[in-house]
């Protein structure tokens, strides 16, 4: 009890610190931009080194997945694994939209590298989800 009141009285936790950039519109902007362009959420908040590395590595990974004849999965609720793969694919943002626009990502199931391609494509999207969460934490002032 004493420890609790002590903590509440004198020490400030991360949750109590003022959050200059925690306005909902700014959080939403950061998250949407971070989804559309990998690393943009960090660049917007002045984390240039991190943002540039994400901006290069994640689309590069996605591009390798396409080059390896990986498939961009459709949103099919009837097949849960395909559905989860589709969610992972969409995590990369604009590169996914561009690939769809240019009819890339049809996937060649007979290619030796097909599964490798799928792995690269899905991992790129899933890693970008983590990058979005990190940008969200930065915007909240947690990091």
């Amino acid at each position: 009890m004493i420890e609790c009141s002590d903590r509440m009285g004198t020490k400030s936790t991360a949750a109590e610190r003022p959050r200059a950039s925690a306005e909902p519109w700014r959080l939403a902007t950061v998250c949407i931009l971070a989804w559309l362009v990998p690393g943009a959420g960090h660049l917007l908040q002045g984390r240039r080194q991190k943002g540039l590395i994400f901006l290069v590595t994640l689309p590069f990974m996605f591009g390798i997945g396409l080059w390896l004849q990986g498939r961009l999965f459709p949103l099919e609720l009837s097949d849960p694994l395909v559905f989860l793969g589709a969610i992972a694919n969409r995590g990369i943002g604009i590169p996914y939209i561009a690939a769809r626009m240019f009819d890339a990502g049809a996937g060649l199931v007979t290619a030796a590298s097909y599964e490798y391609g799928n792995t690269f494509l899905m991992t790129a999207g899933l890693l970008n989800f983590l990058v979005i969460l990190d940008a969200f934490d930065v915007a909240l002032g947690r990091k």
């Binding site: 590395i53 994400f54 994640l58 983590l130 990058v131 990190d134």
Partner: peptide, 8 residues
């Protein structure tokens, strides 16, 4: 993958 995780 290790690059992205290390930077994160």
């Amino acid at each position: 993958v290790s690059t992205v995780f290390a930077v994160l």
